[in-house]
């Protein structure tokens, strides 16, 4: 189930082709990620939007090799080596050197029995062989960089002594401690207060720029991506249904699902956590329908949609859509 091999990037940092993530239990087999293609250019922020259950988080985990119990990933994943050549990689090896992840829930993401400074220093110690003292200096610098006040003192704090926003900054510092070229962000702002969300978003944007770091930013909150993503991929029912330049996507969505996402919630200052306004529910991953998987909720459904192929079509001008109908949908800009 592959789409066009040549996407628009000439020398991508990460290439994901035909990714499938399957969960096997004694009686059942589910494939919540069912053929995903993605590319990330060096220094680019790719947004990955979709509702809960679309498979977006699992995609991220598969890239890093951190799937839950019972899960296995299959596909062609390549990461650029030092010379820029895309080569298949070992997730375990890449975790300490090329990629890392910012997790969603700051309240549980930090080891309760480690001081935050020690945690941030850990990456440097293990992968750059630094001495404890040097690694701590580095950690304090990182803490300063992510905006933690009085970092020298804060480094000795225990996680439970910090607020959600501070903890998330520690999380980010930890992810940066291994000097990644690609930062995977799994809903990093979802569990935070609105004002803190904004701060963290602008922090991430700044870091990506200053460090020439690429990012994949996963969220269920499409409008959030407006302020941070260069390109956006929208996922639904295990596959990417639309991909486009960020501004273009918001101006002219090419898939009814993207359109629905945009118009069911305000574009700016989102406080809703649930998707409001689209009737129905996503299909059960155990029984994905043949044909278009959005058909039963689509406002623009027509005859033939239920048998239509469900994959990204040809990518033209860095945009692609899985919708077989040529629709003229209105954006929000």
């Amino acid at each position: 189930m592959t789409t066009k091999v040549d996407q628009t990037i000439s020398s991508p940092l990460l290439s994901v082709r035909d990714l499938h993530v399957t969960f096997r239990s004694k009686h059942t087999e589910v494939t919540p990620v069912d053929g995903v293609d993605l590319e990330v250019a060096p220094g680019e922020i790719l947004g990955l939007a979709g509702e809960s259950g679309s498979g977006k988080s699992l995609t991220l985990r598969a890239i890093l090799g951190l799937l839950p119990r019972g899960g296995s990933a299959k596909g062609d994943l390549r990461f650029a080596g030092d010379n820029g050549e895309l080569v298949p990689y070992d997730p375990a090896a890449v975790r300490g050197s090329g990629m890392s992840m910012v997790f969603q829930e700051p309240m549980t993401a930090l080891n309760p029995t480690m001081r935050v400074g020690d945690l941030i220093a850990l990456g440097a110690q293990i992968h750059q062989g630094m001495s404890k003292a040097d690694a701590m200096t580095e950690a304090v610098d990182l803490m300063r960089e992510v905006g933690i006040p009085v970092p020298e003192r804060r480094a000795r704090s225990w996680p439970h002594e910090l607020s959600g926003g501070l903890r998330q900054r520690v999380m980010i510092a930890t992810a940066l401690s291994t000097k990644p070229r690609l930062l995977l962000c799994d809903e990093p702002t979802t569990a935070l207060d609105v004002t803190v969300q904004r701060q963290i978003l602008s922090l991430l944007r700044r870091l990506a720029e200053e460090r020439q770091m690429s990012m994949i930013f996963v969220t269920h909150d499409l409008p959030v991506l407006a302020s941070i993503a260069d390109r956006i991929a929208v996922m639904y029912a295990g596959r990417v249904v639309e991909i486009n330049d960020s501004r273009e996507l918001f101006r002219r969505p090419k898939h009814p699902y993207t359109h629905a996402l945009m118009h069911s919630a305000p574009v700016i200052d989102v406080t809703e956590e649930r998707l409001v306004g689209i009737e129905g529910r996503p299909p059960d991953p155990r029984r994905f329908p043949v044909g278009c998987r959005f058909a039963d909720r689509c406002s623009f459904v027509a005859d033939g949609c239920e048998d239509a192929p469900y994959r990204l079509g040809e990518i033209v001008d860095s945009s692609g859509t899985a919708c077989v109908r040529e629709l003229d949908l209105k954006g929000v800009r």
Binding site: L64, L66, A92, R95, G96, S97, S100, M101, F103, E105, T108, A109, L110, N111, P112, T113, M114, L122, G123, I126, H127, M171, T174, A175, S177, T178
Partner: peptide, 25 residues
């Protein structure tokens, strides 16, 4: 737990993971 996943995500595995993340907790 989440924090063990975080540990693994920065490349901590094997004995160091057991020592600093598992045993302590």
């Amino acid at each position: 737990s989440d924090y063990v996943q975080v540990g693994r995500s920065i490349g901590v595995d094997g004995l160091p993971l057991i020592r600093k993340f598992v045993i302590r907790n």
